[in-house]
């Protein structure tokens, strides 16, 4: 049982990260922390892809030296996904700055009160 879990610990971590990220996006009242939660959520997915790239006893089509080898494709995909994630964070933080300039707060409950009198 322990062995079974130990061999799959990265999948457990993946779903922990997804859960923590989701919780932060929903439960946290601070807008910046929501954005961080979004990042944690995406990191979970990155880890999922990277750990899936390791296949027991995999070979390489171009190299002859002994392994272990991992599949390069998921790594390339995740490089792209990281770039997407960075751009999203940049846009999100830009919006957070604008919201702060406008309302002077980053807390969603205060924000709701301020906007109710608008």
């Amino acid at each position: 049982m322990i062995d079974l879990v130990a061999a799959r610990v990265h999948y457990l971590v993946t779903f922990l990260l997804l859960g923590i990220g989701t919780y932060m996006m929903i439960g946290n009242r601070n807008l910046v922390k929501k954005v961080i939660g979004m990042n944690v959520f995406q990191t979970g997915i990155f880890l999922f892809f990277i750990s899936a790239a390791y296949i027991e006893g995999a070979g390489s089509p171009v190299l002859s030296s002994p392994g272990p080898y991992v599949s390069p494709l998921p790594h390339v995909l995740i490089l792209t996904a990281i770039v997407v994630g960075v751009s999203l964070t940049a846009v999100a933080l830009g919006l957070v700055v604008r919201i702060y300039d406008e309302y002077g707060t980053l807390e969603t409950d205060v924000l709701r009160e301020v906007r109710a009198d608008e």
Partner: peptide, 15 residues
């Protein structure tokens, strides 16, 4: 400010 708040919500849910 309303559009910024709407856009941030859209961004998080859309992501």
């Amino acid at each position: 400010g309303r559009s910024a708040v709407a856009a941030l919500k859209y961004l998080i849910v859309g992501t």
